[in-house]
Amino acid sequence: MTIAIPYGRQDISQDDIDEVVAVLRSDFLTQGPVVPSFENSVAQFCGAKYAVAVNSATSALHIACLALGVGEGDIVWTTPITFVASANCALYCGAEIDFIDIDPFTYNLNASLLADKLAEAEKIGQLPKVLIPVHLCGQSCDMAKIYELSLKYGFKIIEDASHAIGAKYKGEPIGSGRYSDITVFSFHPVKIITTGEGGMATTNSESLAKRMQLFRSHGIRALSDKAHHLNNEIWNYEQIELGFNYRMTDLQAALGLSQMDRLNYFVECRNNIASRYDEALVDLPLITPWQHQDSNSSYHLYPIRIKAPFGEKNQREIYDELRRSGIGVNLHYIPVYRQPFYASRGFFAGYCPEAENYYHQAISLPIFPALSHEDQDYVIDAVKKATVI
């Protein structure tokens, strides 16, 4: 079948192209001046002191864990309704991973269940070192409650805001660091802004920023020509950690820096499309995304949940029918612990019941700034036809 309308798509302007071409004609394709400019732009937008650009949000999650000292014997908790990278980053460090079930309304990590699990974990000496709440679809988790629990139980927080640049929580930009140690953004092509592939970590800690900068570039730091080494040897750099090649190029940064000029516009477009969907789909046998009053979503995704009483179409039937109509609906996400790799580590179907309920009902509809009114109407009509017998 031919997919005419994908669930997400990048929006590239002539200005974006011109900025990338300017880098191609410059002296630096990588490790030049544009990456720091992009970092400064994101940090200023979010109200954070520091930003560290990398080649993917997965890399950002990895170095964030490393910067916080995650290693063998440690435990990291996250949500099951996310991309696998939110959990994999802990395993990269040799830590163990566990999952907290989701809130039935926001689909984010359930802060009340987190409190219950922390109380039980404290009794047996199995508290997490780090918690990774994920702002699913662009809506913030209950960060004030999560931060309060972190003060009580002593864990660190990495906000996985891969979906959420441009979103707000309690009136402040996500990424400000008010309720966490580090926040991670993604710039994959279907995200709010793109660098092709790329990610960013923001923090208000100078030491964490320096640690992440070290880990993204082989664990190497530059030395001045006055560095003190014996025998008059030339040392202009030294490796002091086992790091990685996670650097972002100036080409990617140029695209991201240009896209930042339209970030607010992109978020506004996504919210407008979501509002049209909300209004048009209100009387159908499905649930549209619920928004908490403390959150202003960036609407990276727009998942509907299929309510299928006996005799009506189920999720699979509607999903297939929409794709046959040329609409590239998707599923975000299969619970991470259901993946074969995680099943081999002892997790099982039903481990997080609310996540399973969501998984068996959710379908992500197309939402991106360039989605025309005509295509929006086509999606709306197709959903109406698919959900009614």
Rank of each mutant, 00 (worst) to 15 (best):
A201Q: 11
S186Y: 07
Y265M: 04
M200I: 12
S217F: 08
V184R: 03
I192E: 05
I174Y: 10
Q213A: 08
V267H: 04
F185E: 04
Y277D: 02
T203R: 10
I193C: 13
E172R: 15
G196I: 01
F155Y: 15
P173R: 08
A253E: 10
V267F: 06
Y179E: 11
F185Q: 11
N236K: 10
N245L: 01
C269P: 00
A201N: 13
G198W: 01
S162Q: 03
I240Y: 07
S217W: 05
E238R: 12
G198I: 02
L223E: 11
R178S: 04
E159G: 03
E159Q: 14
Y265K: 14
E238Y: 02
R276W: 00
L230S: 15
N271P: 00
V267Y: 05
L214N: 13
N232D: 14
G199S: 12
G166E: 06
Y179H: 15
K168R: 14
M200E: 11
R178Q: 13
N272C: 04
M260P: 15
N204A: 01
G199C: 05
G196K: 07
P173S: 11
R178K: 15
A161W: 06
S162P: 12
V190S: 13
Q239H: 01
T249F: 07
A167N: 03
D181I: 06
R270H: 10
Q213T: 05
N264V: 04
S224N: 11
Q213I: 00
S275A: 13
R178I: 07
A253G: 01
N232T: 07
G177D: 11
I273E: 02
N204E: 03
E206T: 06
T195H: 00
I193D: 12
P189S: 15
Y246S: 01
A253D: 09
Y265V: 08
H188I: 00
A161F: 07
D225H: 07
F215I: 02
N245G: 09
N232R: 12
R276Q: 10
D181S: 13
D250F: 08
E241A: 15
T202S: 03
K156C: 10
